[in-house]
């Protein structure tokens, strides 16, 4: 596939792939490698990193292993990032697609509703939703999805709108294919690329959102997330700065990797298909 080729040709994309791969692997394998979970108090508190090989990244205020916490945090962040982004992309594409495809009053109605969501500051709305429905993984994912879908809808609408006028779409409609079929099999594959790029970047946003929610105390208290670690480490930052720094650093690495990959995918937009014959 041309996307893979493009990715593997860029050194920064390769690095990003490796990093992200490590994060994903850590998240997936966490319960297998550390079945006890991240909450267990395993040693004395405030062990510095790299001093005790049994706990390579040290321990926190209650003696919990920071490395284990980071790995479980990866799991949480990825879970939330992926699920909420999927939900937002699915919903946003559906709304935007319908608006762009049908145009007219349907378009106006859907876009005004979308704008309603967009005018509310997204983080404030997310906080509100999570606070109302009690913080839990589900409510956080739902809240993030709810505040993230409008840009997807706008993009999908623009893409569907422009595709709608293309001749091959008109030809498909003429040949008797139903609207749904045309939208699904003709238009959608052609608008997937920009949507995928957007989705990649939205995963970053979702991870940041979740971290911010955990930081203000609205995270799911049953799971360890990077945002929670930053918040917990804040209290003892004067004495053990690594408790806050390392989770923050993990967030940064993950998001930078995702951004690079998103860029690379965007660049790899195969002009082959769209290129006119050279004269």
């Amino acid at each position: 596939m041309p996307i893979w080729k493009s990715l593997l040709s860029r050194p920064d994309a390769i690095l990003a792939l490796i990093l992200l791969g490590a994060v994903v692997l850590a998240g997936v394998l966490a319960p297998l490698i550390f079945p006890g979970g991240p909450w267990r108090m395993v040693a004395r508190p405030f062990i510095a990193p790299f001093t005790d090989m049994g706990h390579p990244l040290g321990t926190d205020a209650l003696g919990r292993d920071l490395a284990v916490a980071l790995i479980y945090g990866a799991r949480t962040s990825l879970e939330i990032g992926l699920v909420s982004t999927c939900a937002a992309v699915l919903f946003g594409t559906a709304i935007g697609g319908i608006a762009g495809f049908f145009g007219g009053r349907v378009d106006s109605l859907l876009m005004r509703s979308t704008e309603m969501f967009q005018t509310v500051p997204s983080f404030a709305l997310a906080i509100l939703l999570v606070a109302i429905y009690s913080p839990s993984l589900l409510s956080i994912m739902a809240a993030i999805a709810v505040v993230s879908w409008p840009p997807v809808a706008r993009l999908a609408r623009a893409e569907f709108l422009s595709m709608r006028r293309r001749e091959f779409v008109q030809a498909a409609l003429l040949s008797g294919q139903s609207n749904l079929r045309v939208a699904w099999s003709q238009i959608l594959p052609n608008v997937l690329s920009p949507l995928i790029v957007m989705a990649a970047l939205m995963i970053s946003m979702a991870i940041l959102f979740e971290s911010a929610l955990s930081f203000v105390g609205l995270g799911d208290p049953q799971v360890v997330s990077w945002g929670y670690l930053i918040s917990a480490g804040r209290g003892v930052m004067a004495r053990s700065w690594w408790l806050t720094f390392l989770p923050g650093f993990s967030i940064m690495l993950t998001i930078v990797s995702i951004s690079i990959l998103g860029d690379a995918i965007g660049d790899s937009q195969d002009p082959h298909f769209e290129r006119k014959e050279t004269e």
């Binding site: 293309r166 001749e167 091959f168 008109q170 030809a171 498909a172 003429l174 040949s175 008797g176 294919q177 139903s178 079929r181 099999s185 003709q186 594959p189 052609n190 298909f273 769209e274 006119k276």
Partner: peptide, 26 residues
């Protein structure tokens, strides 16, 4: 209808067989 620009009139991501089959199916 047969359109003016044959490039724009075909879905760039579908093979020829798929394009024809879609119409035949419907």
């Amino acid at each position: 209808m047969v359109f003016q620009d044959p490039t724009a009139a075909l879905n760039p991501r579908h093979m020829i067989g798929r394009t024809l089959a879609d119409v035949l199916k419907v």
